[in-house]
Nucleic acid binder design. Structure first.
Lengths: 228, 228
DNA sequence: GCAAAAGTGTTTTGTCTACACCCATGA
DNA sequence: TCATGGGTGTAGACAAAACACTTTTGC
């Protein structure tokens, strides 16, 4: 069969991933030092080219796996970036994704190996191409999503204290929340299970651990998570 | 200079536009009968291929202009659709946009010329490829955006009555709103200007026209528009 | 015994919801 | 004069915001 779409322009298509992590205090983004031209040596989002036989989602998953060794990473498409001059190396479209990982799941040896590093959002170095803009949109997308869906847990260890959870939301929204109001609200969502175990690092008294309970969550109709 | 990105796969890239219109009663989407293979004769979103020297936004604008003769159409990127089998005619990525137009701005003669037609959202015929899925996402995107931004006015004529405006939000959210609560809320946003002129078609008494006042709007901090 | 973080309730405020009648007009 | 849609206010329920002290325990 003759291909019906002759005579149209062809594009290289990349994906770039804004990988967020949370260290208990700050929201951070994972960047790599680019190892090839153009813009070799510049700080860059994690990216790569899409292959013909895969979707862009599959490509993002593959690239994240290659970098981190992790599968089933929470991921969401942000936008297609397509300014004709965005990449001096060629005519490349890029589909940006944000991804949420538990910061401890990304082993330090891989960080060295890939020349990558975590940067707090307010200390991000100059980025190549339009990656700064991608980061801005990813941050906005994360805020929007977290306002209505319980995605925060993707950024926390399996068990966490309420104060860590509150700190995460404070980091995402760059705001300060009232401890009592936050506790009441999050518990009223009925998606947490309290463990009989305390985190004793950061205080003498110790704070109870909680886990996100998917069973409970499935039973809830999603309430607003707007903490602002 | 040698191109640094050799040996990566190339893609055709299309844009598809979900064009919404509002006739005073129903939210509608503009579809065309496809005039070429594959899927010739099937109902399709309005689309076309992206050219090398333009962004996807520019491509969408060009395609909308070619179809409607309109410029400065409100438009928002939804998502990239990239399933390898989505288009039997070739390996085509598509970037979906939703677009909002004032339904009367699209002249009837152009509709005939392009074999296009307006369909209420609950009476959409089977669509080609993944266009149904695009439409679903566009609808969700419209609802999400309209909840926090005053984009509804893009779908209404310059002057409109409060009942038309309410009808629009009811159509977008597929719900029924209380007239008094709606009136109070929308007027409290302080973005409308009441005209000294009445619409007398649909009632004996006549309903005052309002216009969206961009000056007032600029002075407001965007409040929630959630009417649900 | 004291420093440091954990945990816990009440009051006030504002917002959302539900609800029904009179008005102006053209036919 | 009557049928039609236009326009308007209030009370109750609920949710959000503000706010401070006691508890635990390792040092």
């Amino acid at each position: 069969m003759a291909l019906p779409y002759k005579a149209h322009d062809l594009f290289l298509v990349a994906v770039d991933c804004i990988i967020f992590g949370f260290d208990g205090k700050e929201l951070k983004v994972l960047l790599v030092k680019r190892s090839f031209e153009p813009a070799k040596g510049g700080w860059s989002l994690i990216g790569g080219f899409v292959k013909k036989e895969e979707s862009v989602e599959a490509a993002a998953g593959r690239i994240l796996y290659n970098l981190t060794g992790l599968t089933d990473i929470y991921m969401e498409q942000i936008s297609c970036f397509s300014n004709p001059n965005r990449d001096p190396g060629g005519r490349v479209l890029s589909i940006a994704f944000f991804a949420l990982i538990k910061i401890d799941d990304y082993p330090a040896d891989l960080m060295e190996q890939h020349n990558s590093g975590w940067f707090p959002l307010y200390k991000v170095p100059p980025l190549i191409f339009d990656h700064r803009q991608m980061l801005q949109m990813a941050k906005a997308g994360l805020q929007a999503k977290a306002a209505s869906h319980l995605i925060g847990f993707e950024l926390l260890p399996k068990k966490f204290t309420l104060q860590q959870l509150q700190g995460l939301y404070e980091a995402i929204y760059e705001t300060v929340l009232d401890k009592r109001n936050f506790t009441r609200k999050i518990l009223s969502l009925n998606v947490l299970r309290k463990l009989n175990e305390k985190e004793k690092e950061s205080s003498k008294k110790g704070a109870f651990y909680f886990v996100f309970d998917r069973r409970k969550h499935a039973k809830q109709t999603e309430k607003s998570m707007m903490f602002l």
